[in-house]
């Protein structure tokens, strides 16, 4: 899909301005070459994460998680795990059926989306170490806030 779109766009731009488009394509190819190693590193980390932080492991660890400890475990697993939405949310659905609280689910899915240990090589390459660390720490805090609000909404937490 993305390739069709890219090809169509390139064709249109090529008709408008040949030189400019070739320059853009060359720049794109250069970026692919330059970024291959960091993406390769990320793929390796993803492969390890998928193996060691498997769906079964997440089910087992979050299956009876609750309270602050449950949120902490969920946040930790969410930070190191890597899974696309079409895997993560069905899994979250199973967890709900098993009686896991919305608070814990929110901590897991939010860290999964925002905190990235496996995407670290790519993020560091583009943004440098400091920004990467700051962004991930802020995201972790945000995940806790989201999970608390979710908990209050579903009546799982009380003030």
């Amino acid at each position: 899909m993305v390739y069709y779109f890219t090809a169509a766009l390139t064709a249109v731009l090529f008709m408008i301005d040949k030189e400019k488009t070739i320059k853009g394509l060359k720049l794109g190819l250069k970026k692919i070459r330059k970024n291959s190693p960091v993406f390769l590193n990320m793929i390796i980390l993803v492969a390890l994460s998928l193996y060691f932080v498997s769906d079964e492991l997440i089910l087992r660890f979050l299956g009876d998680g609750s309270g602050a400890i449950g949120v902490a475990i969920a946040g930790g697993l969410g930070s190191v795990a890597f899974m696309p939405g079409f895997v993560a949310f069905p899994l979250a659905g199973i967890l709900l059926e098993k009686g896991v609280s919305y608070t814990v689910i929110a901590a897991f899915t939010t860290t999964l989306m925002m905190v990235g240990i496996v995407t670290y090589p790519v993020e560091k390459d583009f943004f440098g170490l400091k920004i990467t660390v700051i962004r991930n720490i802020i995201s972790l805090v945000m995940a806790v806030i989201v999970s608390i609000v979710i908990g209050l909404f579903y009546g799982e937490l009380f003030i």
Partner: peptide, 30 residues
């Protein structure tokens, strides 16, 4: 196990990441 994960995620990446960089290149120039 790890290699299977590596291979399948590698294929997923190849399916669209290079196109993203081409688009970024075009964006940069255009």
């Amino acid at each position: 196990g790890v290699f299977d994960n590596f291979y399948s995620f590698f294929l997923t990446m190849v399916k669209f990441v290079p196109a993203v960089f081409i688009l970024i290149g075009l964006f940069d120039v255009w």
